[in-house]
Design a protein around this nucleic acid. Sequence first.
DNA 1: TTGACATGCAACCATTTAGTTGCATAATCT
DNA 2: AGATTATGCAACTAAATGGTTGCATGTCAA
Lengths: 107, 107
Amino acid sequence: MDEVFKALADSSRRQLLDRLYDSNGQTLSELCEHLVMTRQAVTKHLRLLERANLVVILWHGREKLHYLNPVPLRQISERWIDKHQRRIPRALSELEEGLEMIDLKKA
Amino acid sequence: MDEVFKALADSSRRQLLDRLYDSNGQTLSELCEHLVMTRQAVTKHLRLLERANLVVILWHGREKLHYLNPVPLRQISERWIDKHQRRIPRALSELEEGLEMIDLKKA
DNA sequence: TTGACATGCAACCATTTAGTTGCATAATCT
DNA sequence: AGATTATGCAACTAAATGGTTGCATGTCAA
């Protein structure tokens, strides 16, 4: 799970995922086209995404095709994010309690 | 949104959020108790969480109380993660297409 | 009022990260 | 076969990150 969070931490990498979302199965060169950095930098980002299993690679001759794998995203949602999200009302009421407690002391 | 993803990238910080999930409104010292690093390191992590608005701080005398704020998590879910998650079936069929395309060429 | 406790601030350090440049290799096209 | 294209690999650099230590400050309690 750590690798997925780490992979998502960089906005260039999230951008790459977004570009694959728009058009899946792009080659490395295609992914580089609208980006400012060098191809080698993009390669490194994609390698991280691949390690985190967020992107799957298919070789087609000398071309490297990149496909999204949305499963790890579902996993971090299910295992972590949803848990915290479900507690929004409770967290807010606890914060309110905290505020009251402080004000009581002050009064 | 970037700050939230960055904040979540570190496992110590996710752990801190988990500890607040178990018991909201803890002081800095309390949060330090079961961790291996120094108080100052924890402070830095909490500062990042605060900047990302994942944690809200209430001062109570000399004590700093930390409360969860689950809203940013909901936001990154709504604005980013859900979008990608919703496309699981499509992403998988695109990957399949890719595989077929390659196999066709080979045959 | 003095001592203990909760926290902040600053300087420093090692590692990781995000990027670069330069060169090598392999597939494709003419 | 030769030129072009798609990619990989390695070495290097600057900046960010995660951690430390040492000392300062403010609050509480005896």
